[in-house]
Design a binder for these strands. Sequence first.
DNA 1: CCAAATAATTCAACCACTAAACAAATCCGA
DNA 2: TCGGATTTGTTTAGTGGTTGAATTATTTGG
Lengths: 353, 353
Amino acid sequence: MRAHNLALVLQTVVNSADRPSRAAIAGATGLTRATVSALVDDLIAGGLLTEQGPAPRNGAGRPATALALSPDGPAGLGLEINVDYLAACVVDLTGAVRYHFMDRSPTLAGLGELAARARAAAAEDGLALAGAALAVPGLVAPGGLVRVAPNLGWQDVDPIAYLRRTPALADLPITVDNEANLAALGELRAGDGEPTFVYVSGEVGIGAGIVIDGDLYRGGRGWSGEIGHVTVYPDGRPCRCGANGCLEQYAGAAMVAEDPALAAASLGIALSAVVNLLDLDVIVLGGGYAPLFAELSPGIEAEMRRRVLTAGLAPVTLRPASLGADAAVRGAADAVIRGVQDDPATWLALQAV
Amino acid sequence: MRAHNLALVLQTVVNSADRPSRAAIAGATGLTRATVSALVDDLIAGGLLTEQGPAPRNGAGRPATALALSPDGPAGLGLEINVDYLAACVVDLTGAVRYHFMDRSPTLAGLGELAARARAAAAEDGLALAGAALAVPGLVAPGGLVRVAPNLGWQDVDPIAYLRRTPALADLPITVDNEANLAALGELRAGDGEPTFVYVSGEVGIGAGIVIDGDLYRGGRGWSGEIGHVTVYPDGRPCRCGANGCLEQYAGAAMVAEDPALAAASLGIALSAVVNLLDLDVIVLGGGYAPLFAELSPGIEAEMRRRVLTAGLAPVTLRPASLGADAAVRGAADAVIRGVQDDPATWLALQAV
DNA sequence: CCAAATAATTCAACCACTAAACAAATCCGA
DNA sequence: TCGGATTTGTTTAGTGGTTGAATTATTTGG
């Protein structure tokens, strides 16, 4: 129960636009001021929250002491390995990007080195890392094993085991996730505050991350969002996956450049299927699609108006992503931070030891 | 916390194959035997659980007293209105169907009458109803308003308000849900125990219910699962929804009879999209598809082997539904029962008054 | 018939939240 | 300038619910 309420209080601070007081938190959560005080004391002692100077009141009464996430609290290490680059970034508890490194030699060895450098930089700032998350363009099994990553030429690679061999990372909890999934999480924090949407990332392949009520939907085995292989023309072009008429053949990077109208129509067909099946009312176009949004969106929307059954009852919003190419690394680091924010009790317990 | 633990204990009884003892529940939940005893006492006093005679032991020690859901506990009333029939059924807390009524005059007035008859029959057995759920073949808004039900000719109909006018139902909590959604819930209880699957119901229209980890996925506005309007042939036949090439035009009741091979291939294409997007590994064919399973499944599976990206990594299971035409009513009644099982504390509180 | 084993209950202790009183810090009006 | 009004935050006593240990109940096996 205490664990639950610690999370509740911390989440309230995270989700509130301004810097709430203890009394404001009590009002928002339904807990009493006394309980909130006790919980906040624990969170401050654990370095997750900080008190800020008394805010000026506009009325009678003792001025409130504002509370905010501590920039010195646990940070998240985001990592990404992709076709032509490596990236690492450190995001602190407030969501601010503290460090961002890139490298053009996408090898596992380089990734370990980059991660170690990021950790050292964080340590110099006095930042402790709560963990690391790695974004990979491929299918990731529970436990972090990468089953297939065609564009990396990977098959059954275990990047966690590899990273653990770097002494600087040996003690760090590491998770691995699909690139589009993590990019969707990055967009969740950076975006409009919409808690439910699908993020479509158009790169060499096309992936999607499905966010429902602020949580990533991963599917039964973690392989959701493979929109690139949704069939748009059953007898169409052969795809490298063995099927015919996959979206990837009509809205992949090559086709977007060659025939934007076809790419848009194809995306519209596939996204209509997403909306009909999942009833999502926000679609975010990211990756390579974001800079081409103005060119693509009319064609996509035209198809969706026709093909989404509920289009007449409620509108579907299409918008470009607010993060650029670093969405996945940012999202990876955010995923670590979210882990702490969703369960501060275990972090506090670790600190106490 | 007590509410949570009451639910935890009750769920343990629901989910266990045999009839567990207090000690077995303690072991399964992590609570102490003392706590479980106290909680079980409350559940027995509230009529949700019953003690059964001591089970014979196969070893030393005092024999355990088996616990089971009480058949005299709160029951659920399932209702269904469809194109050519009405149905009502009463399911008790153990999941047993106690009464089942049907009527061939599908009007709201007839539904109220049928529901009243079912309630009277239940009362004669000493069964109290915890609530009612109504299955409707259409789009249901939160609050129970039916926005559109094309095959009933409904538009913005409020069946709850109507049913409440029947004196026998005035005090009953009533919910309304999509027919395919509730049929999926019925299948959840009746089926293999798979917690995650998609249920496809092929009638005049085609709907799907998506069950994830034992819970229905409803989408942002409750309009998920509209697989009937997923595009399979972008330039294909015009559909009554205004689009072209919807699955409904290729795998609806008429087409299944006329050209089963085309229906199967079309279903395979649409279901591949479902699996690619949602990563579900079980697909249940219900409604009109169930009796034709043997004829349809090879064609569906052939398409899915080609079009599901992860088909090579993990198999997708296709199976016929275990319930027939009464899946939706059963599921509706089950939904009510699930409400009690998921939150026994409020039921106990109601009883205490 | 007694020891071992397992089930269920009882009871004191403890943890976390609540409610209410209290102290602190400000504004406002006389 | 001072005292009441007002709001924040803390303190203290009290309560509900869980835990852990001891106790009782009921069987099997030697």
